Amino acid sequence: MENGAMPQHKNKGRRYSAEEKAAAVRMVRTLRAELGTSQGTTSRVAEQLGYGVESVRAWVRQATSMTESKPESRPMIKHECENSSKRCVSSSARMKS
């Protein structure tokens, strides 16, 4: 670059809708389940959709952390029970079923 300008990336500033992100995450998860491995799945899906690999990787990571942090998807721990008896009762019922 003779003029000192930074190189322009073709997808710079691209905004993806929530539906596009969710579809990409579903595709990665489906491919991982079909192949039995996570190696290379994110890049394959990103390339297929024409999205940036790091964008898709971040969406999958975010979706995974959101799923793991939902109270319904994990057992209650003792200090949570002490802080919320209402949640403890519901978690006990959840754990029995």
Rank of each mutant, 00 (worst) to 15 (best):
M1V: 07
M1A: 15
E2K: 08
N3P: 01
G4K: 14
A5Y: 13
M6F: 07
Q8Y: 13
Q8M: 09
H9L: 08
K10G: 02
K10E: 05
N11T: 03
N11W: 00
K12P: 00
R14T: 01
R15I: 13
Y16R: 08
Y16H: 13
Y16A: 11
Y16P: 05
E19G: 08
E19N: 11
K21P: 02
A22P: 05
A22F: 00
A22W: 03
A24I: 11
V25R: 00
R26Y: 12
R26S: 09
R26I: 02
R29W: 08
R29P: 03
T30Y: 06
T30E: 15
T30W: 04
L31V: 01
R32A: 12
R32C: 15
A33K: 06
A33P: 00
E34L: 10
L35V: 04
L35S: 12
T37Y: 06
S38Y: 08
T41M: 15
T41D: 07
T42E: 15
T42F: 03
R44V: 01
R44I: 01
R44W: 00
V45P: 02
A46G: 07
A46N: 12
L49Q: 14
L49V: 04
Y51S: 04
Y51N: 11
G52I: 06
S55V: 08
S55D: 14
A58I: 04
A58Q: 03
W59L: 10
V60H: 05
R61A: 14
R61W: 09
A63S: 15
S65M: 03
M66R: 06
T67A: 13
T67E: 11
E68R: 10
P71C: 00
P71T: 12
E72R: 07
E72Y: 03
E72I: 11
S73C: 12
M76A: 05
M76E: 03
I77H: 08
I77S: 12
K78T: 04
K78H: 07
H79P: 09
E80P: 07
E80F: 05
E82I: 10
N83W: 02
S84C: 08
S84N: 09
K86S: 02
R87M: 13
R87Y: 07
C88Y: 12
C88K: 11
V89R: 01
V89P: 00
S90R: 14
S92I: 07
A93G: 03
R94P: 02
S97V: 06
S97M: 10
S97A: 14
